[in-house]
Design a protein around this nucleic acid. Structure first.
Length: 502
DNA sequence: CTGGGGAGGGGGCCC
DNA sequence: TGGGCCCCCTCCCCA
């Protein structure tokens, strides 16, 4: 960026979220900076209010983490909350989830965790548990609360909805409505956490009943997977999205258990092609979406054992390892050069052949590599004016293209060019050639200097006076934007046809 | 500005 | 369906 520009730049640190969470977890385990003590049936858990407020709707409301809420537990005050309505094991699991984005529980404890997640408003955990338990959880919930039976379909939708989706405007009645109001009771808010008025442990503020449930977002970097709310996905697609989410870091252990989960009755549709929930890009190929997703998450699970460099893909690591082993499996048959990548060899061989199949349509400079041509065109280093090919009405000085036809690239070299209809790539270049290119091949310069009636540098920054010879080349259009190659090729084909007519 | 090497990412094919 | 392998495209960096 030039010093004069003041544009915003975004430098992603993909590891940051996980490192942050890891650090917070270490602090929790060491009891550092913990400003919240959770107690459940005699068990105490040190934690951080901000973390709990981030992960739990219940705590968010309790601490005033929601916008416009004052909360009863002011910042900087150490407090404790009694959660006797949550089983200690479930609370422990939920705390681990909050700090590791991974829920590790026994199957037998699933229901208790589900209940705790519902009560505390940890929606994604509740959803995952319900997914594993299938319909039974809801059936039982509904059996306990018959009035909810009619909303089963709606609840199913909510279950399948990704927890990354924005929370509903009002807390969904997913779980039995707590005794306490959705928001912490104002009277209750008046209680100081340390007042000890409500409990058997002096200094504790007691939360006798849970707050409302509600949607939430992942507390970790998984929020990257948040789908747009108005993507018009079908219910099944949403479920598929949930499936993928369930396979992510937050629910990996759950996904493993899900295999034998009876009663889910869900079958994955074919995932080819798949749409990335982050960038909406369509990813073709079975099993390619996880690979693509790593480009968003920054996850690099493949580490070089020699230098520690990490890669998102195994095949890239494999290629990288060649640097350490010295293996260069792509030798040039024409010289001692060897290459790491097949494509490098292909590029290299074009040097031997002198093939420069990529020609700038504006200045007609030829390049051996397409990206070099693109760079050339982007860099305004070529003639920006739209000129027709000098073949038309060639001046007496127009000579042959110094390009050896025998050394023209193999067909593969042209495979990178866009489809050119019936005209092959070489034909494009040969169209400039005399019928019998008897001139000796010389690799440089490959661009015949006299192919342009007016060399690019003469065009640069100038406009042709009316009635000059520029007319013979076609009227230059100083404001003509760069044209797509196929447009140029269309012109080329027109030129060829006109030549034939002549 | 250009040539060349390296790397990241997508797609095809196969298992 | 996921992973391995390969090819291709594109971009970046350096000389």
């Amino acid at each position: 960026m030039s010093p004069g520009e003041d544009g915003l730049i975004g430098i992603p640190f993909p590891e940051h979220s996980s490192e942050l969470l890891s650090c917070l977890n270490a602090q929790r385990r060491a009891g550092l900076l913990c400003d919240l003590t959770l107690t459940s049936r005699g068990s105490c858990y040190l934690t951080h209010r901000s973390v709990m407020a981030a992960v739990s709707v219940y705590f968010r409301k309790l601490f005033g983490g929601e916008e416009g809420e004052a909360g009863s537990y002011g910042a900087g005050r150490r407090c404790s909350v009694q959660l006797d309505f949550v089983a200690p094991d479930a609370l422990d699991a939920l705390l681990d989830f909050a700090y590791t984005a991974t829920l590790t529980i026994r199957s037998s404890g699933m229901r208790e965790v589900l209940r705790a997640a519902q009560l505390l408003g940890i929606q994604c955990v509740a959803d995952a548990c319900r997914d594993i338990l299938g319909e039974r959880a809801e059936d039982e919930d509904c059996a306990q609360e018959p009035h909810r039976v009619s909303r089963r379909k709606k609840d199913r939708r909510h279950v399948s909805r990704s927890p990354l989706s924005p929370p509903p405007s009002s807390p969904p009645p997913d779980c039995p409505q707590p005794v306490a109001p959705a928001a912490p009771d104002p009277d209750y808010q008046e209680h100081s956490p340390l007042a000890g008025e409500n409990g058997d442990q002096p200094g504790d503020s007691r939360v006798a009943a849970p707050a409302a449930n509600g949607g939430m977002r992942w507390a970790s970097g998984e929020s990257l997977l948040a789908p747009p709310p108005e993507d018009g996905m079908s219910e099944e697609e949403e479920e598929e999205r949930g499936e993928y989410r369930a396979g992510g870091a937050a629910a990996a252990p759950l996904a493993a258990e899900r295999g034998g989960a009876p009663g889910t009755g869900r079958k994955r549709k074919s995932q080819t092609p798949q749409q990335c929930p982050v960038c909406q890009k369509i990813i073709h190929g079975a099993g390619k979406l996880p690979r693509h997703m790593r480009t968003h998450t920054g996850e690099k699970p493949f580490q070089c054992t020699a230098c520690g460099v990490r890669f998102t893909r195994n095949d890239k690591l494999k290629i990288h390892m060649r640097k350490h082993t010295g293996e260069r499996p792509y030798p040039c048959p024409d010289c001692p050069a060897r290459f790491l990548h097949s494509y490098d060899l292909k590029n290299h061989r074009s040097l031997h052949s002198g093939a420069r199949p990529f020609e700038c349509p504006l200045c007609h400079k030829a390049f051996a590599r397409e990206d070099h041509l693109q760079r050339h065109r982007k860099g305004h280093s070529c003639l920006e004016l739209r000129t027709r090919r000098p073949r038309r009405g060639p001046g007496p000085g127009e000579g042959p293209l110094l390009l050896d036809p025998a050394s023209l690239p193999h067909s593969s070299s042209f495979s990178r060019s866009p489809p050119q209809g019936n005209s092959s790539g070489p034909a494009l270049l040969y169209s400039h050639l005399p019928e019998s290119p008897s001139v000796p091949f010389h690799p440089v310069p490959l661009l015949a200097p006299n192919r342009l009636a007016y060399p690019p540098h003469l065009w640069r920054g100038m406009t042709l006076p009316a009635g000059t010879t520029g007319e013979a080349m076609g009227p230059p259009s100083p404001v003509a934007p760069p044209r797509a190659r196929w447009e140029e090729e269309e012109d080329d084909e027109e030129d060829e046809e006109e030549e034939e007519e002549e």
